[in-house]
Design a protein around this nucleic acid. Sequence first.
DNA 1: TAAAAAAAATGTAATATTTCACTTTCTATA
DNA 2: TATAGAAAGTGAAATATTACATTTTTTTTA
Lengths: 232, 232
Amino acid sequence: MIEKDENILSSEKNLLKIISSQYINEEDFEKLYDSSVILQFKKGEVLLKQGMKTTHLVFLTTGMVKFNYHDNSGKNLILMVSKAPAILGGANIFYDGINIFSITAIEDCEGYLIDVEQLKTIALNNSNFAMKLLELVSGMFKDSVFNFISLAHKQVNGRIAEILLYLSRTIYESETFTLNLSRLEFAEFVGCSKENVINTLRKFHNDGIIEITGKHIVIKDTGKLNKISKVG
Amino acid sequence: MIEKDENILSSEKNLLKIISSQYINEEDFEKLYDSSVILQFKKGEVLLKQGMKTTHLVFLTTGMVKFNYHDNSGKNLILMVSKAPAILGGANIFYDGINIFSITAIEDCEGYLIDVEQLKTIALNNSNFAMKLLELVSGMFKDSVFNFISLAHKQVNGRIAEILLYLSRTIYESETFTLNLSRLEFAEFVGCSKENVINTLRKFHNDGIIEITGKHIVIKDTGKLNKISKVG
DNA sequence: TAAAAAAAATGTAATATTTCACTTTCTATA
DNA sequence: TATAGAAAGTGAAATATTACATTTTTTTTA
């Protein structure tokens, strides 16, 4: 019990900001806390499933996930990649309550399942809290729009350069990292064939822009990568 | 004065739902009303400009607009097309207050400029209202995601078929309509070259799927168009 | 740890898309 | 209503991308 509390409070970002005493009182916090469950997810497991009713959000405490959409023809698309700490599923709640995409672990994860009904009840009685949720959803919207824009006017090498920079800066926070997406998943993120991803990564490698050995990537020339991402 | 009120109240969709007495009291409504201005926009005029601070939203009462993003290399992209009645600009407010895209009239429009600060003040004191705004933003998020998905895994003919159906169903609400986008704008919406748009429309015409004479379009074979939009 | 399965890599042919240079057709307005 | 400028349309070459067939490498698991 105590361990659970400490866990929530020790993660310094999103949820803390939102749930902390600034926006929510002790009593509301207890309600939310009592209705939440902590769960482990193995790589590949689905945290939120596309098409299902949104009964909960997930506050991810450790691990990384992908936001993926699968269409009826079997094709798959990765919209976003996110790492702990983060609140997942926020965009679904206040619309019609059906998950528009899945959220899947791309490495072992741990997270709190937060009851949506409870959350709504609290938001209705606390507009500061509701506003914070609005900020959260707007932020996601913005990210999605930027990703969309990039997809629309950039060619594959520009997209790949951009995604490499994004992963390096935002997700792994290092110029050296071990990718936890397969080449196929990477292709689903870029929006092209897996062969194209493989060839382009190889080309970047041969041009000395990156160094890639299997899943291990080192970004050698950020300047050039930047240029490609802008021009491409 | 009376005319203005009637105008707001007679449009049956978004704003009414949100602003109506169910969610906002007489006094708040007056505040919002007093800080709002009605304006006319000519085709091509910008209602909200990308990069500028969000000082107002627009409640569009008549006309049609495009949501367009322009990048520094001069390329332009249309994210969405929307017609009255609609609330425009909602996604910007609660994030960092900078418009992430422009909203431009594609035909003569009329709309109310609603002061954002006033709106925020009211939302802070009225969580029902805040929740309604959340729904609005979530809805836009959802639309954007679907458009994004379509762009990512469909080829140009699939995209064009889809956009034709979208325009027919959602925007013009008829199988016969007069497009108020140029071929170039249509291409910016599809995310391809204008020649590709022209050729594809011609091909659809020759195959008897649509009938196109300049800007006048008749959808002849919805079934086939549907198929192309799904397979493509 | 060996075998099976999955993922990565490669080269080439087929296809899709853009770019370019140009003509034709509209449309606004002087 | 003549005319300039914009928009639409065309065809062909250049480029980008995918699809396919196949091999190599890595990972999983019996």
